[in-house]
Nucleic acid binder design. Sequence first.
DNA 1: ATAGATGCAAAGGCTTTGCACGAAG
DNA 2: CTTCGTGCAAAGCCTTTGCATCTAT
Lengths: 154, 154
Amino acid sequence: MISGTHFQPSSMSDPKELRSQGLKVTVPRLKVLDLFKHSPDRHLTAEDVYRKLLDEHSDVGLATVYRVLTQFEQAGLLQRTHFEGGKAVYELNEGTHHDHIVCQQCGRVEEFYDAEIEKRQLKVAKERGFTIREHQLHIYADCIKPKCPHRPKD
Amino acid sequence: MISGTHFQPSSMSDPKELRSQGLKVTVPRLKVLDLFKHSPDRHLTAEDVYRKLLDEHSDVGLATVYRVLTQFEQAGLLQRTHFEGGKAVYELNEGTHHDHIVCQQCGRVEEFYDAEIEKRQLKVAKERGFTIREHQLHIYADCIKPKCPHRPKD
DNA sequence: ATAGATGCAAAGGCTTTGCACGAAG
DNA sequence: CTTCGTGCAAAGCCTTTGCATCTAT
């Protein structure tokens, strides 16, 4: 067999990660996973992914991007969130829970973790007889530092 | 002038609330505001509002419901949130900030406020040079109490 | 009288789906 | 060779908008 499609550039993600999740190893899947692993932006929308793939002349359909993102989320490779604005945002699932603070100036996202906040959430839920399944804290804010990387060049 | 439309049932909200916001006093607006003030559910989607108005034979178009909800939010009468599920949810704006815990069994929403959580959010934002504009904590959970009102009858 | 509100239907934005073709195991 | 993935176009869902008509002030 003369492998054409089995060629794997150094930048490509490890096929094992896909196989171990019962997913066939395909070019679109490798490219998408790769994007999340190497892109400077941790948080990407389906549109972002689609555009980045177009930029590198990978001919992947938008529908496929949506399907792959969904599958990756179900496989636990990615995590999905919704910020204000309606679009779903995906990020690599690295196992560690964190919350988000979103700059309203430029849309960039910073992550943070505060043990006390987590603790109190558990307390609140417990007091009310709930078992937490998932929780998301989104802070929408403006950066006030003049040299803040979030502030668009002025 | 023989006023037909100026009739105001006792259940209707106070027109002043609308006027003070520069909004003309109309039947759809009074009915919507009234719904939020007297409905057993604090949290309603546009569709919810539309259906409830249909139920009471108020002929209000869905587009109008959307417009009124948007205006009320801008006027500070209502607050909008998005829970998982894509639909926007509105509630009366009573000035006090609170977070939400959503039962995954039945979709009901409970509100809570925890001073410590609020404090830590301010701290986190400040440390990173942000001014908080808005923040939302959504906990998605399951109720574990057998007699919990959230649990659908079993 | 006049600015503003409403209803309807059409359009928009994001996401999902049906189907025929193509690739992976 | 069989199962699954892909691309395209069409459809879905929630929400917004254009336009002619109607209403509050």
